[in-house]
Amino acid sequence: MTPHDTPAIDAAALAGLQAWQGRSETLHDQIVASPVRALSATLDRDDPSPAAGTPLPALWHWLYFLPHHRQSEIGPDGHAKRGGFLPPVPLPRRMWGGGRLRWEAGNPLAVGDTVERRSTIVSVEHKTGRSGELVFVLVRHEVHNARGLALTEEHDIVYRAAPQPGEAAPAPKVAPKDATFSRDIVPDDVLLFRYSALTFNGHRIHYDRRYVTEVEGYPGLIVHGPLIATLLVDLLRRHTGDAPLARFEFRAVRPTFDIAPFRVHGKPGADGKSFALWGEDAEGWLTMQATAVLA
Score class of each variant (00 low, 15 high):
Leu245Tyr: 06
Pro244Phe: 04
His69Pro: 10
Thr152Arg: 12
His126Met: 03
Gly241Met: 10
Asp184Leu: 13
Arg93Tyr: 06
Ile157Gly: 01
Glu142Met: 02
Gln71Phe: 03
Trp60Lys: 00
Pro50Asp: 04
Ala197Lys: 02
Phe193Pro: 00
Ala229Met: 09
Pro87Glu: 00
Gly269Val: 08
Gln289Gly: 12
Ile222Asn: 01
Glu249Trp: 06
Ala276Glu: 15
Ala270Gly: 04
Ala38Tyr: 01
Ala105Tyr: 07
Pro165Asp: 12
Leu277His: 09
Ser72Lys: 11
Val223Ser: 00
Ile9Thr: 05
His144Leu: 13
Leu286Phe: 05
Ala38Asn: 08
Ala168Cys: 08
Phe257Pro: 00
Arg117Ile: 03
Pro170Phe: 12
Asp258Lys: 03
Ala162Tyr: 06
Thr42Gln: 02
Gly266Arg: 12
Gly22Ser: 07
Gly84Gln: 04
Ala150Trp: 00
Asp208Cys: 09
Asp184Gly: 09
Asp178Glu: 11
Gly166Val: 07
Thr114Ser: 12
Ala229Val: 11
Glu116Thr: 12
Val223Lys: 03
Ser131Ala: 13
Gln71Ile: 14
Ser34Val: 07
Phe193Leu: 15
Thr213Pro: 02
Phe275Tyr: 15
Trp103Thr: 11
Leu286Ser: 14
His144Gln: 05
Ile9Arg: 00
Ser72Cys: 10
Val264Arg: 01
Lys81Gly: 07
Val233Ala: 15
Asp281Cys: 06
Ile31Gln: 00
Ala51His: 14
Arg237Tyr: 15
Phe275Gln: 08
Glu283Tyr: 10
Val143Asp: 01
Glu73Ala: 14
Leu134Gln: 11
Lys81Pro: 05
Phe193Tyr: 15
Trp96Thr: 12
Val111Asp: 14
Glu216Cys: 09
Tyr64Met: 00
Gln164Asp: 07
Leu151Phe: 03
Ala58Asn: 01
Pro226Arg: 04
Leu198Asp: 03
Ala243Tyr: 01
Asp77Pro: 02
His155Arg: 12
Leu56Cys: 03
Gly272Glu: 05
Pro90Phe: 01
His144Asp: 03
Leu63His: 00
Gly217His: 06
Phe257Gln: 01
Pro176Arg: 14
Tyr211Lys: 02
Phe181Met: 14
Thr54Asn: 05
Asp208His: 09
Val190Phe: 13
His265Leu: 11
Gly129Met: 05
Asn201Ala: 10
Ala51Lys: 15
His61Ile: 03
Thr291Ser: 05
Glu216Asp: 13
Phe136His: 10
Ser24Val: 04
Arg251Asn: 13
Gly99Gln: 07
Leu91Ile: 07
Asp46Met: 03
Gln21Met: 10
Pro35Met: 01
Thr6Met: 07
Ile31Lys: 01
